[in-house]
Every structure is written in C-alpha cells, then in structure tokens.
Design a protein around this nucleic acid. Sequence first.
DNA 1: GATGAATGAGTATTCATTCAT
DNA 2: TATGAATGAATACTCATTCAT
Lengths: 191, 191, 191, 191
Amino acid sequence: MCAARALFETKGYLDTNVGDIALRARVAHGTFYTYFSSKEEIFSEVAHELTTDFQRIAADEPPLAPGASLRARIERANRGYLHAYEQLAPMMAVLEQVATFNPRLAEIRRSARRSRVDRGTAAMRRWRERGLIDAAVDPEYAASALGSMVDRSAYVWLVLGEQYEFDRAVQQLTLLYCNALGLPPDDDNSA
Amino acid sequence: MCAARALFETKGYLDTNVGDIALRARVAHGTFYTYFSSKEEIFSEVAHELTTDFQRIAADEPPLAPGASLRARIERANRGYLHAYEQLAPMMAVLEQVATFNPRLAEIRRSARRSRVDRGTAAMRRWRERGLIDAAVDPEYAASALGSMVDRSAYVWLVLGEQYEFDRAVQQLTLLYCNALGLPPDDDNSA
Amino acid sequence: MCAARALFETKGYLDTNVGDIALRARVAHGTFYTYFSSKEEIFSEVAHELTTDFQRIAADEPPLAPGASLRARIERANRGYLHAYEQLAPMMAVLEQVATFNPRLAEIRRSARRSRVDRGTAAMRRWRERGLIDAAVDPEYAASALGSMVDRSAYVWLVLGEQYEFDRAVQQLTLLYCNALGLPPDDDNSA
Amino acid sequence: MCAARALFETKGYLDTNVGDIALRARVAHGTFYTYFSSKEEIFSEVAHELTTDFQRIAADEPPLAPGASLRARIERANRGYLHAYEQLAPMMAVLEQVATFNPRLAEIRRSARRSRVDRGTAAMRRWRERGLIDAAVDPEYAASALGSMVDRSAYVWLVLGEQYEFDRAVQQLTLLYCNALGLPPDDDNSA
DNA sequence: GATGAATGAGTATTCATTCAT
DNA sequence: TATGAATGAATACTCATTCAT
C-alpha cells in the first residue's frame, strides 16, 4: 500500500498501473491480487488511510488555553486543516481527481465533507442560539459555504500552487470566517 | 464541436471517445481529424467556449439601479455566477475533471480563475482605500478565498447535488461575503 | 473468418486466441475488432456458416428415382448426413466442445438439432398414419432417439476416430433405422 | 475429492479452480498438491469414480426372472443405463465437456464406451449365431450405433434437458433397439 | 504433512491516431 | 475534404503451481 500510495501521489490514479505498483513493491505482478482485489480497492484503502491521517494531523494542533475565545478556536481549526492539507496535498489532489470519475470513490470524499459540514452546522446552531453570531446567518449554508472556502483555498494553494504564505493564510481565512459569521472583533466567550 | 460538447457533458472526458463524437456529428471517424488534431484539442475548444458562455451568462443579470449599494453589486455578481454555473454545470463538472489530470487543460480553468480573482483583488483594493471594508482584510487573500467560497459552493450544490435553494443560496453567499469583508450592514455607497 | 475457422478446427475454441487469428489473417491485433466484437461472436458466425454448409452438403446427394422407397430415402438422408459430417468433422467437434460450456453458443447446436428432430417427428407421424411403420413406435421418441443414433455415430466415427467404413456405415445405419421403425424389409411406397 | 466432485458438478471443469476445491475441503490452498499433482489428476480420479458408480448403479436393477426374454434383458440394460445417467447426469455432463478438449481425460470416456460396445458386439454375435436377430445386422456397427443411440439420448434428455418421461423413454428405446436388431416381437429365449 | 504467500505466464479488449484511396 | 479500414500500444485480472516455513 505504501508503494501504491507513492505512485498515486506522483502519477495520479489514471497513470498508475497495477504492474508498476507490484514492481515498486518488489513482488510479482500477480502478487498484487493476493492483497487487493482490484486497483479500485487499493485506492479505496489508501484513500481511507488518507482521511484518517488527515483527521489525526488536523487535530494535532497545540491545545488552546482553557477559556480560549471562539475566534481562537476557529483559527486553531483552520490552522489544523491547512497543516493537514499541506502534508497530504499530493494524495488530496488524487482523491479529488478520482472523485470526478468514480462514483464509488467519490463517496469517500463526500462523506468526509458531509461530516465536517454537519459538525460545522451543529456548532453554528449553538453559537446562534447563544447570540454569538449574526442571526441572519443560516447555519447550514454558512457551514457549507465557509467549509467550501477553507477547503477550496487549501486546494488552490497547496495543489494548484497559487502563491500563499502559511501563517498569513490561516490568519486571513480566520478573519474572513469570523467576520462572515458576524463574530465580534475580539471576544472572550467560549462556546 | 456541438456533438463533442453534448457527449462530454453526459459521459465525461474519459468515457467520450473520438469515434462517438464522429458518429454523433454524422461524419466518418477519420473526418474528425480534418477539423481537430486530437481529442485534447477539441476539448480545449469546447472549454474555451464554455468560459466565454460562462462570462456572458454571468454578466447577463438585470442591471442595477444607478448608485446601487456595494452589497447589491456583490449580490448581483454572486447571482450571476450561480446562474451561469446552474446552466453550465455538466460541462463545468467535466472541466473540473479534466483539470485534475491534464495540465494543459488545467491551464484554461486556472486562467479563468486567475482573472476573476485579479478583478476581485483590484476591487477590494479600491474598497479598502476608500475605507469601505475592514482594513485587516488582505485584498489578495480575500479575493482568492471568497472566490473559492462561491466557486466551490456552486460545485458542491450544482455538480455534487448537495441540497440548496437558489435565492437563499445567493442571499447567504452574499451575506457571508459582505460580512467577511466587514461591509457595514446597509450602505448606499457606490464604488 | 477463414483464418479463425482454420484455427478453431486445429486448436479448438479454448486454445485459439484472438492474437493468433489476427496473426494468421495478417492484420494487426486490434484490426480483429474492426470486424468482430469478440471471440465469441466470430465463433458464432463460423458456427452459423457451419450449419449452413452442413445443410447444403447433406442435401447435395444424387436425387432419388421418382417413387423411390422410403428405405431409399432414409438411406439417402443418412448418407447425406454422414457426408456432411465427414467434410466438416473438425468444426463439428469444436461446436460440440463449445456447446458444453457456452450456453449462448450451445443454442446454435440445440436449434439445429431441434429442427432436424422436428422434421423427423413430422415425417414419422405421416408414416405412422399411413400404417407404414410399427404402430407401437412413438414418433417423438423415435425421431429423437434415431436422430441421436445417427448424430452420435457420426461423432464417434469422424471425430473420435473409431474405425468404420463409409458405405457399410450408411447401410447399417439405414438398416437399423428402418428396422427400428418396423419398416417392411423391402417396400416400394413413397411418403 | 468429494469437494472437487461437488464443484465440478455445479460449475463444470473450466470454472472450478483449485483454490475453490481447497476452500471447500477446508484445507489450505497448497495442501491440495499434497494429495493431487494437478487439477487434471483430481478430475481423472473423480471421473474414474464416476464410471465405477455408473456401472454399479446401472447393474443395480431388479433381477430378471430366470429364463427372461432377450427383450426383457435389453430393457433391463436400458433402464439401468438411464437410471445411472439420471443419478449422475451433472458429472456425466462435465466428463463430456472435458473429453472435448483434454485427450488424456477423453481416454476415460473412450474406454468406458469401448468396453460397453465390445460387450454389445459380443452379445450380438452370439444372438446372431443363434439366429435370434436379423442376419443382415452387423454386430460391430449395431453395437456401436445402438450404444450411441442410448448414450446420446440420455445426454439429450438428462443433460440438455429435452422433455421426456422416464418409463416411456425406456420402453421406446427398447422397442427401437429390439426392432433394429430384428428381434421377433415377443420371444421367450434367453441368450 | 500442512500452510498460504508468492509466482508469472497468459489474454481479451479499447481507442486515439494514421493514411491510402 | 472525406472516408473508414488498419494500427498497435497499453493494461487489469486469473489461476495452476511452487516452496520456504
């Protein structure tokens, strides 16, 4: 799977063939099928590993001080997301690729997005009830759209190679995110 | 090209073959190469047509009253973008697909994005100089990130099929956009 | 198809590969698919040609004198069948082979047999009504079983290579056939 | 071997793989080769078992009264043959299949047929010497052809699934068989 | 004897592209 | 220009058999 992942990262899904994977793993061509039933299946496993890695890395940010502000927590989440994307960018690009023509594998990306957006929606609902954010903001649309903003920005910067500077990106993304929700400039509330 | 576009829309780039295009265009298989040098080239032409169509449709919104607010203008731009995406979604999906594995064709999408973001950046610079928006917002990052937000939201709703309601989407996207920039709730300034 | 038939005859269906067919036809491997959609399809065409040839050859026996006896007509049919089988034995063997594992192609053999047995049944019914044959003989079973006798004997002699002598075989087959039906030793009736 | 036989019966020779046999026998894949040297060999053993079973079942008909007629004995043999075929039809079908492409295994079927035909020939020679059957009938051809009739009829009914009714089939087969040999309608001679 | 991982030869099919007519 | 037959490279998957443990 290690060999496969490396090849997927460098050549993409379409240009990676089973023969190359076996070659790189230093086993016979047929041996591949002792471990995986198809090219699609091994990609699926790599992709699941990817989403697991992603969540682990994204969560692995320095803990916030107790009672940290909402803004600080959003910033931490954004930094975590960008950190994870930064480390996994090549595979994220391939997952994006595969999702455009393989419905079964698209589902992996879709469910990852789904759970992220759902968590965002739930959080925003709480914040809204507590009057912490702009009442005009619809949690569902906001979670989806702001999720798209962070997600796509990471892709544009880390996959497409648009110029950016990490800390500045985190800071601006957080500023836009908080402003969008109507979070007061400097708050000290915890959710 | 009409035949090709229809096929690309329904089957995607990978599953559309030159033979099918010729068949649909009612010419011989070989005749295809009288007009196009390769499958990549015809896709390139279709993609250029797509971006032209997109701009035309996006611009084809009812004109604003003279002296309309910035917010109104942003809303108009968002509505135009979503309208255009709505009408061209199938081809947009294919362009997205191809851009993931063909660098040459990725360039088409990249330059369309580039000019859109550049215009956004320029506008935000002007608004910033005039003190219309949050001084902490960096025009380059904001134009890029908010462009990503609108762009990706359209993809998620119109290509991936996530539930949404058109007018609500435009309104929320605009609200988040303006909030993000720190635009005062209701202004009557024109840029 | 000529190349394919020759290969099927010498190597059987399983050991004949598309590459060999193309090679023998002196065309590129891929050219095969310009003419046939699959190995199964080309076999199907060869098999249909075979059944056509078979019927043509089987019918191509010297005509009988007007008013020839039933026995003479049965002998002529048996001789025709054996003649056809003799000339087409290698392909008949392959058809038999394929029919054991490919239901679609088995249908070709089945329908050829079906029509032969049906004709036999109809003829025997007429003979029975006219009191020409043993009333205890059931036309359906007799046509099926005696058809099997002739059919399988041809296979055993011409495919499996069991020793036989052509004229003697025809004569004995006819004797057994007529005896089985209870046809009087020497009749001069026409049907 | 039990596992192998069950698989051969349901899936045929070609679609049965060594891995499946081992799986069904609840041993490791490689263990198969501790007991059998190849797929061909295990099939050979199953096929030998089959011919033994066949002879046992075919012989296991109610004994005839002492001094039973020739016709009664022929009917008993036909009934026994059809009974055996009925019980072993799936494996008989596979043996027929394999015999079409594997000369070594074809030999099993050939020798079973050979001994049956030889016995028939010997019997008919005796009957002929005693003037019990039509003198024009050649024992060799008759034993071969009538053996083919019974054998192929069984295949057509029990493997190919052509409609038939057991007792009627035995009766008609016997009638045709005896008629073919020119056996007088009702005799009381024993051979 | 038993295991099961490893082997690697074998093959039908697709399709963008070319070119003689 | 139009044709469409010909091309041939490219590739995932199967499976009987082997052998180190």
